[in-house]
Design a protein around this nucleic acid. Structure first.
Ligand SMILES: [Zn+2]
Ligand SMILES: [Zn+2]
Ligand SMILES: [Zn+2]
Ligand SMILES: [Zn+2]
Lengths: 165, 165
DNA sequence: CCTTGACTGTTATGATATAACGTTAGATAG
DNA sequence: CTATCTAACGTTATATCATAACAGTCAAGG
């Protein structure tokens, strides 16, 4: 093994965890029906894997788990499922980490921002209404037609601020 | 050749271009002296290459150019120079494109946002004061100590909006 | 001179992502 | 119910992006 699986080991006190995982899965099912797309077994299982993870998972981390459960063993299996989830608003891609995370608020058609803790690798999905408004204004100012945006902040989560050296 | 060199072919009417390239290089020299770091030949040439490019360049694009000019031929040569430039505020990394671009405003100690055109791949560095303020507010709201952020918007630049199908 | 440390270049490898193709399984039309 | 069509799957193979580790160079300081 190379060095997978470590990403986002134990995160800061409260995380989306499995408490509301079932609720989110239900929302995903509903959303899939609404949009007339299929939440197939691999896709559903991939979402569950993301929900169970504490932090964001790399595609190869997800693949490893899928493989042992009898799904495909090759990268496209994971990438396809992950891309499906992202395209359908059930997960997000965290570019800075080359990783993916389940959407914490799949109901709203939101544009989220992510707060990435440098110490514990936890990823928090934050409401980004104000940020997007400001970004829209900046884009308008130069005549840019904004479609979507990646907003990723790096710093220390509340729990890790106490623990600094 | 694989498919390098195409990224950011011809961009939308106005770009940072070579007009102010000399001025930016001078600023970079000054900045290097200030910070007591060395803008060595590879580093300087790398910055020039970024300045001459219309869009953002991948590390391997930069490497290709460095190689024909007698600098090293292996990836670390490019990555080291690029990382130096980024760390010293002379260039930015565009994560969505796995690419790098010269900083358009190297004097100010800014936190920039980038507007990436889907049609022509041009990358514009926008002032992000308002966006960062909003992001700070969102981070504060959940007790996150924000250090730095990646803000990358995708859409159509002004020039490409007319040219749509 | 000789050490030291920053910089450069190399080899080798690791990590992330997609292209292309044959097969399977769900839906649809007859 | 079957024929047909298409989305989804899984595979092989390959592309693309990035870094670890080490050796040689060179200028600054003792
Ligand atoms: Zn979300
Ligand atoms: Zn933390
Ligand atoms: Zn800049
Ligand atoms: Zn454009």
């Amino acid at each position: 093994m190379t060095e997978h699986a470590g990403r986002g080991g134990f995160c800061c006190s409260s995380h989306s965890g499995t408490e509301n995982a079932q609720a989110i899965l239900d929302l995903a099912e509903a959303r899939a029906k609404d949009r007339n797309v299929r939440l197939t077994p691999v896709r559903r299982r991939t979402l569950e894997i993301l929900l169970q993870a504490h932090g964001a998972l790399g595609a190869y981390d997800v693949l490893e788990r899928l493989a042992v459960e009898g799904f495909g063993t090759q990268p496209p299996v994971a990438y396809r499922a992950l891309n499906f989830l992202v395209e359908n608003g059930m997960a997000h891609r965290i570019r800075r980490l080359n990783a993916f995370t389940a959407c914490a608020h799949p109901a709203e058609d939101h544009r989220a921002a992510f707060l990435i803790c440098e110490a514990c690798d936890s990823v928090t999905e934050a409401a980004a209404g104000g940020v997007n408004a400001a970004l829209n204004a900046a884009a308008d100012a130069v005549g840019f037609a904004l479609d979507r945006a990646t907003i990723e902040a790096v710093g220390l989560c509340r729990a890790c601020q106490g623990a600094q050296a």
